[in-house]
Design a binder for these strands. Structure first.
Lengths: 303, 303
DNA sequence: TGGCGTGATAAGTATTTCTTATGATGAACC
DNA sequence: GGTTCATCATAAGAAATACTTATCACGCCA
């Protein structure tokens, strides 16, 4: 036989009451049931825990020591229950969130502020990389959720749309007064794009009705920031998501214009494993992220 | 339902193996049995511990935290078993031993030396008082054993004889060359005795064939040491147990003589509750005490 | 699409644990 | 000194629990 928590609970009651009948009452069982479990416990241990006197039940020396430890254990076990109850509703512990590079710099500060304000004691890990890798890491359980451009169309993943964001044209400041190009004239221009793998590259190309582009410059490992700086140097033009405008165009000699309808845009959403037990919390979080995105974009409009 | 250690063990195995089948093997149960217990555990907690992927079983955030604590608990529980095993054979913890005043000063130093030498980490509490009170305290579980003169004849107590000790006559040094009195001549002398309640008083009286004595001096709260000093002052004579001779007659102007046969004597023994779970250890201890007594008495003879 | 690996579910069985009834023992009380 | 009371142990049958084997469901992979 093995030690059981039930035996510990009965033992603790008996140690406290010093009386089989009353201890059994306290445990809501019959007195023989308690007797049997105590005997079982003593047999398992190979030692007597109580000295049964005619009129009193006393702990032995060993029983005293045993009681101290058992109380510790029972306390720890009860804490487990509390812990579970606490973590059932609100998100606790670690949240590993992946974000694509064309969103991360603009949205993350807001997200992290909101999340850590609402969920005290939440540890946030951020992973910034391409969608394909995020999906991999999601499948492997290395991150809990990711913020990407939809659709991802992975059957194992849940997708939740957060908001749409338009793409804007960034061109040298000198071009400020030129007319807004349409997608066809855009194709004629020297369009600077991120390296392959970035979804934003594909989205931009698709807007221009291009399947692929032979880049004249290799921009491996570069960022929207780099692109904008290059535009400022008069090398060409580029597209950036509108959320990036305030950050990226502040310190560059560039001008920004919106396209005429139909404007290019993409849907930003959150994804997570369908099997994730965090699903409920992730839905809550998606609301927070949506609000964060709205805040950022409204700041842009007014700023 | 309640949390059980069994569930914790299964959970730990599953957390370790990340695979229901292999974890079940490790627990020597079937896979469904493990599945059920894990589900039960999760339902009890109201939280998911594992995320069941198609090809892998992963701990959730909460599961990770849970695993840490569960491992702690299981370790504590296993330690309980070790603790029991360790304390089964040798005596550990606290030993509360009572001794009557006419033995304590002469035997205790030796006993304590032997006991604490043999049982490392044994905490010895000594209670020195009259037999009647020792028996009371034994019954109440306030001491574990007592060293007294036998018989005590309490049905609830085990008696173990340790050794016999003779009584010797202590008389003023001036009487050194007088003949050894017998019990009848002793009755004529001015016999100094301990106050009522001391068994040694009764034993001495019984040797003289007296049922009681009207003491001419009230010696309440006194000791053999006091008696001997009084004898040295020429007030009367007294009897002391032979074990007390070296200590008590060293610094007094008294002479000591043995009686002729039949010499007065008493049996010193150990007593403890029949229900005491320490019985086995107490038997061992009684051997140690017996040897201690022999050592003390042999030192007396040669010294 | 069919086989494979894996976990969940189902049904029946074994084991454990509980309850009620009763026995044994020592203490208290005439 | 028996009688009664209190208390814990034991016994036997009932209830609850845990386990086993067999089977299903699902996703993955070829």
């Amino acid at each position: 036989m093995n030690l059981t928590l039930k035996q510990f609970r009965y033992f603790e009651a008996l140690a406290r009451h010093g009386h089989f009948g009353r201890a059994a009452d306290a445990c809501s069982i019959s007195q023989p049931a308690l007797s049997m479990q105590i005997r079982e416990l003593e047999e398992t241990l190979g030692t007597e825990l109580f000295e049964r006197g005619a009129r009193q039940v006393r702990l032995t020396n060993f029983g005293e020591e045993f009681a101290l430890r058992v109380r510790d254990i029972l306390r720890s076990v009860d804490e487990l229950g509390d812990l579970a109850r606490a973590s059932r509703d609100r998100l606790v512990g670690r949240l590993r969130i992946g974000v694509i590079p064309t969103i991360a710099p603009y949205l993350l500060p807001e997200i992290i502020t909101s999340l850590s304000g609402l969920h005290d004691g939440l540890e946030i890990h951020v992973r910034e990389t391409l969608t394909s890798r995020l999906v991999e890491e999601l499948a492997e359980g290395r991150i809990d959720t990711a913020i990407v451009a939809l659709p991802v169309s992975e059957p194992a993943l849940t997708e939740v749309a957060l908001f749409n964001e338009k793409f804007v044209l960034v061109r040298p400041d000198a071009d400020r007064d030129k007319p807004v190009p349409d997608r066809d004239t855009l194709r004629e221009m020297r369009l600077l794009l991120l390296e392959e793998g970035h979804c934003f590259r594909d989205q931009a190309l698709s807007f221009c009705n291009l399947r692929s582009a032979r880049p004249r410059e290799l921009l491996d490992g570069s960022s929207l920031s780099t692109l904008v700086q290059m535009v400022g140097s008069g090398i060409g033009v580029t597209l950036i998501p509108e959320m990036a405008v305030p950050v990226e165009t502040r310190s560059a000699a560039v001008s920004v214009v919106h396209f005429k309808d139909p404007q290019p845009a993409r849907t930003i959403g959150m994804i997570w494993r369908k099997s994730s037990p965090l699903a409920a919390q992730l839905h809550q979080i998606s609301d927070i992220v949506r609000r964060a995105g709205e805040d950022v974009r409204s700041r842009e409009e007014t700023g």
